[in-house]
Amino acid sequence: MKFNLKVWRQKNAKAQGKLVDYTIDNINADMSFLEMVDVLNDNLTRKGEDPIAFDHDCREGICGMCSMYISGRAHGPHHAATTCQLYMRSFKDGDTIYVEPFRAGAFPIVKDLVTDRSAFDRIIAKGGFVSVNTGQAQDANNLPVDKADAEKAMDAAACIGCGACVAACPNSAAMLFVSAKISQLALLPQGGPERNNRAINMVNQMDEEGFGNCTNIGACEAECPKEIKLTNIARMNREYLVASLVNE
C-alpha cells in the first residue's frame, strides 16, 4: 500500500511548526500505524533526515503514551482504540493521511508529535487518590462493596490518561479524564471521607491548567479508547455542586 502523509513537524516547544509531506510505499496492511511511522522514520534516518518524534511505549493500548491526531480524529478512525491499536488496513491504498499532535494549550508541544501532558499528573496530585498510608489498611474483606458499584468504578478506572478526550473536544476540556477519577472514587466507600475536597480541588486544578469547559458535545466519549462514559461528567458535576454547597 502507498500513502501520502502530512505530518506536523516542530523542532521544539518554541519553534514554529508546519505540516510536511511524505510519501511512503510498500506498506503491509497488517502493520500497525506506529509501525508504519517506524518504517517512515527508518527511511528518514537512512537519508540523513531527522526522524519524526512521537510518544509510544507499550504498543498494546494500555499505557496511554501514544497520542496522534490522525486524519482529523484523536487516535484515528477506529472506535475504542489507541493509535498503537490502529492498523493500516483501516485505510485505503493511496489515502492522504494527516498526522498532528494532540492539541491543547494545556498540552504544550515538546517536539513534532510529542506533547507534555503533565497537567494530568498535577490534577491527580490534587485528589486522585485515597489518603491511606502504607500499612494503615484494614482487612480487605471488612469493607464489602456493591458489585454493581464496583463494576461502575472499574468502568471509570479504565481510563489510561492518554488525553484523547482533550484532543477531540472542540473546547479542549479535560472533564472526561477528571470525572473518570472522581467517579471511580465517588462510587467506592473508600473514597467517601475525602469526596468533597477531592471534587473541588481537582476541578480547580483542572481550570488552573487552562483546559476549556465542557459544553456536553460528547466528542470525548466518542473518541475515548477505553469508552469512558459522559455519565461520569454528570456525576462529577453533581459531586462538585454538592461540595460547593456544603464545604466551609
Binding site: F129, V130, V132, T134, N141, A157
Partner: peptide, 22 residues
C-alpha cells in the same frame, strides 16, 4: 496478604462477588 488490604484501601476496583466481597 497486606498488599491486597492496602490496594483495596486505596480504591483499587478489584472484581467482587454479589455479596460485595472480593
Amino acid at each position: 496478604r497486606n498488599i491486597i488490604d492496602q490496594c483495596v484501601a486505596q480504591g483499587v476496583p478489584f472484581a467482587r462477588e454479589y455479596g460485595g466481597l472480593l
